[in-house]
Design a protein around this nucleic acid. Structure first.
Lengths: 198, 198
DNA sequence: TTCATCTTTGACATGTTTGTCAAAATTGAC
DNA sequence: GTCAATTTTGACAAACATGTCAAAGATGAA
């Protein structure tokens, strides 16, 4: 091998992710990425082929990190604690970022479907499915079943869908506090008082 | 007055709405609208100024129609019936349209915030607030309070947020059946069996 | 050091979109 | 019918986007 890559791929993907996260897939141009990374457009095309490939690579990092944070939140055996931590993490994920926050990349991308293309569609679906599976598993313990107001798989679907709703509300109001309060209430109806152990 | 408008404004706004609904605000070009309406681009600029104004006018129709359908769904005094009808209507609203459906215009637009601009942001927020108020009012009757697993205003916030989540899931899976099933389950935890009158 | 290989660079070709405008066409009011 | 107000039309200018490519530059391997 000769003619080695001049840029730090780690830093490049990080900056690309930040850019896509900020603007969404369609609204991000390769020029935006080039400016954000300091790598020329030609080099980006040479290294990654096109915008979709670059996006998929950036999304891979996002996805891994997101699922890690979910796993960690759900690690507590008490379903109430686990769900509370889960929503807190999800809200934090969509509320951080620049001065006006970035929102949730998964949701932004999902809304661009099916225009964003098959590959991106498949990738987003996979993340949603992995996310759902983690919640379902965490809620499938006997202790959790006793406390839930519905079956674990149903609860997982509802929770995932609710987090997507939070992401939309975040864009409209950019008020993390309000999202946290709603999350709290949502957990309350998933795990009703009457079924909670004291 | 002289030099009368050649096009049917009613039909134009209808076609423009359909186009924005299909592609979203940013991804719709004035050329798209011109082709969909049969009215030349120049005429559109002359009549409406720019894309944002045209969008706001189209959104006005969408908004009015949406709230009407919500009012109708919530007209039944039984909260379980009302909420079921509400979700059914909301899911139908986002699942209809061309061969691959259009999704929910409110949600698509909300996700484009804050890039879509202040005027659009204010308009979307207003729709969300009106939507929330209708649900809150419908759930504020003594009968409803007795059946709900939380306060009416909280239930309304949760329901609205959940519908936004449904809109995101619709884009990812385009499966109205699944959305309906989740809605059913959501209504079930908002109005728990134990509190329902037989 | 040489060289084959890969990357970088900047320019190019092509297409899209926005918004403007002068000229032509239309039409209600008189 | 005339005319003034308004719309329509098609062309224009200016940005911005994508993707390609030849030439120049960099570098590991021999």
């Amino acid at each position: 091998m000769a003619g080695t890559r001049q840029f730090d791929e780690e830093a490049l993907l990080e900056a690309a992710l930040e850019t896509f996260w900020q603007n969404g897939f369609a609204a991000t141009s390769m020029i935006d990425v080039a400016e954000a990374t300091g790598v020329q457009r030609g080099s980006l095309y040479n290294a990654y082929g096109d915008k979709e490939q670059l996006f998929l690579l950036a999304f891979e990092r996002y996805s891994g990190r997101f699922l890690d944070s979910v796993r960690q939140a759900l690690s507590n055996p008490d379903p109430a604690v686990a769900l509370t931590a889960l929503f807190k993490g999800v809200v934090a994920n969509m509320s951080k970022g620049g001065p006006s926050s970035r929102g949730c990349l998964t949701t932004k991308t999902a809304i661009e479907l099916p225009l964003a293309g098959k590959a991106i569609e498949a990738r987003v679906k996979r993340l949603i499915e992995d996310f759902t599976a983690l919640i379902r598993d965490a809620l499938s313990t006997p202790a959790a079943r006793r406390m839930l107001s519905c079956e674990p798989d149903v609860a997982a679907d509802l929770a995932v869908t609710f987090t997507r709703g939070l992401a939309v509300m975040e864009r409209a109001y950019r008020n993390p506090r309000h999202l946290e309060k709603m999350s709290e209430q949502f957990v309350r109806i998933l795990l009703p008082e009457g079924k909670r152990r004291r």
